[in-house]
């Protein structure tokens, strides 16, 4: 039992606690405060009956109201889907080339496409779409198969050099290691370097130009400008998917490259394919 002392000034009993000489008065609480406390206890019991509360062995009690955060989220998603239903219908019906003219629909398509991209495409192309070695950068103005809206949409839908889709974009560079000798390969590499750089061996490049004309220009063009109809890259510009130094180029010529992209038609919803095409088109290189 604490020592109940009386405060000299007020005549009220103290709790017996003292901090630095200051004592606490034992002033009674108002009665309604007590009722409020009881009310919160009753409320708490009611709440735990109505809502999920008590932990059991394989989960918590579900509550009489059947409320759950999961159902709430599903409801939210449904509400948003309902809100966007008209936009989705419009997106499915629109001519993709004309999409950028419809500001609202375009904004919706790009936002939706961004989400699709981050979930499905960023694993290879990077979350910022900057690509990596062997995976094209989608921000620049250089396209292997074309950068118009329709080209991008086709690539997304059917993919590149895959076996799943018969309509996939397809082409194959021969491995020149079995066709040309080492000297010829070194010469043609020097020629390719001469197309975009000033640091090369002029005599060797001269020889390489002949090798190039005989073996490469059919696909890559006389001046190395490439051919989008068969995915042959422009080798005269500043963008290199597999590297631009002599070693990387020698490897490319000797063993060839075979970049594959899966088809997304059938895996993504039609609206998602259109949206992600619009998104990629909006990143800076769209034509």
């Amino acid at each position: 039992m604490t020592d109940h002392k009386q405060d000299d000034v007020t005549g009220i009993e103290t709790t017996g606690h003292s901090w630095d000489g200051i004592e606490e008065l034992n002033t009674p609480l108002p009665r309604w405060w007590l009722w409020t406390l009881y009310l919160t206890i009753i409320w708490g019991i009611g709440y735990s009956v109505a809502y999920p509360a008590w932990p059991m062995i394989s989960g918590a009690t579900s509550g009489l109201l059947g409320w759950s955060t999961r159902a709430n989220v599903a409801q939210d998603i449904d509400a948003h889907a309902q809100k966007n239903a008209q936009l989705v219908t419009d997106l499915l019906g629109t001519d993709m080339e004309a999409l950028p003219q419809d500001a609202d629909l375009n904004r919706y398509a790009i936002a939706r496409g961004g989400a699709v991209f981050r979930a499905n495409c960023s694993q290879c192309h990077g979350s910022g779409a900057a690509g990596a070695k062997g995976y094209p950068n989608l921000l620049d103005d250089d396209w292997l198969w074309g950068g118009a809206m329709a080209d991008i949409e086709y690539t997304v839908r059917h993919g590149i050099r895959n076996e799943q889709d018969a309509d996939a974009r397809y082409s194959q560079m021969p491995a020149f290691g079995a066709i040309l000798g080492k000297d010829d390969i070194a010469a043609v590499v020097e020629h390719v370097i001469s197309l975009s750089s000033s640091d090369f061996d002029a005599a060797l490049a001269e020889t390489g130009a002949e090798v190039f004309a005989d073996n490469c220009s059919a696909c890559h063009g006389d001046a190395g400008q490439g051919d989008r109809s068969q995915g042959a890259p422009n080798i005269g510009d500043a963008i290199w998917l597999y590297g631009s130094d002599r070693q990387a180029l020698t490897q490319t010529v000797t063993k060839a490259r075979f970049g594959v992209m899966p088809p997304w038609g059938g895996r993504l919803e039609e609206a998602d394919i259109r949206a992600v095409s619009a998104y990629v088109h909006s990143l800076g290189g769209g034509e």
């Binding site: 990077g126 979350s127 910022g128 900057a130 950068n137 921000l139 620049d140 103005d141 250089d142 422009n234 510009d237 500043a238 963008i239 800076g284």
Partner: peptide
């Protein structure tokens, strides 16, 4: 400023920031 990537090289060798 978009910093993923920090810059983009264009086909003519120009440098672009987004």
């Amino acid at each position: 400023p978009v910093r993923n990537p920090t810059y983009v090289t264009l086909s003519d060798g120009a440098v672009r920031n987004i």
